[in-house]
Every structure is written in structure tokens, then in C-alpha cells.
């Protein structure tokens, strides 16, 4: 079970650039490790991260197996009006994890 953790301000002033920090518990199984019986452990990673603000894609990241387990992603956002920040982590196989919160712009 992947668990997202997000740190983003609840309020911002117009024109301000805010920092969004995210962490999600995930093994990022690279597909290059072997188990005790010598069998390759199949790849299972978070392969994509998307950030939408007020419905528009504002930042995305494609992740390869070279990203460490429990992926940490930090990015910036300049919200010009209040809106909903929606974050989505997409795993190999299509499973999705999400987090959303409102940012009020004063």
C-alpha cells in the first residue's frame, strides 16, 4: 500500500511561487533484483506523477527505476487564483494514488 504525504501551503498571495513537497511510501522495485531463490523480482514502480491545479496539468514527472524507494518529489507552483491542487501517483499496472487540497489565493 502506497501512502502519500504532501506539504503545501493552504494559502498564498497572488503571484507568489509556492513549494510543494511530496513523499509516497513505495518500494520502487527496479526489476533488477533477485529474491532468495534467484528469481528476478518483477518491476513495480511509481512511473508517473502528475500535478493539476484548477483542472490544468501544471507539473509532471516520469520516473524510472533509478528513483529511490519512497519517492520524494518537490516542485514549484505559481497559483494566480484559488483552486484545487490534485496530485496523482501512477504505478506500473495502472493503479493510482491521489491527494488533493485547496489553496486559497489572497
Amino acid at each position: 500500500m502506497a501512502r502519500p504525504r504532501v506539504k503545501a501551503p493552504k494559502t498564498a498571495t497572488a503571484g507568489e511561487v509556492i513549494v510543494v513537497k511530496t513523499l509516497i511510501s513505495h518500494p520502487m522495485e527496479s526489476g533488477q533484483r533477485k529474491d532468495d531463490a534467484g528469481q528476478i523480482i518483477p518491476r513495480k514502480i511509481i512511473r508517473r506523477f502528475e500535478a493539476r491545479y484548477a483542472g490544468t496539468l501544471v507539473f509532471a514527472m516520469d520516473l524510472a527505476p533509478a528513483i529511490s524507494a519512497n519517492p520524494f518529489i518537490e516542485f514549484n507552483l505559481k497559483p494566480d487564483a484559488s483552486g484545487e491542487l490534485e496530485l496523482t501517483w501512477i504505478e506500473d499496472g495502472g493503479e493510482q494514488y491521489s491527494h488533493s487540497q485547496t489553496i486559497t489565493v489572497k
Binding site: 501512502r3 504525504r5 506539504k7 513523499l23 511510501s25 519512497n70
Partner: peptide, 12 residues
């Protein structure tokens, strides 16, 4: 405390 991944376990 945010960047420290150990807090994923604290929260769990």
C-alpha cells in the same frame, strides 16, 4: 520532518 522518510512509518 517532512523530508525524513521515517515519518511515513510514524504516520502509519
Amino acid at each position: 520532518d517532512f523530508e525524513n522518510p521515517g515519518f511515513l512509518w510514524v504516520e502509519q
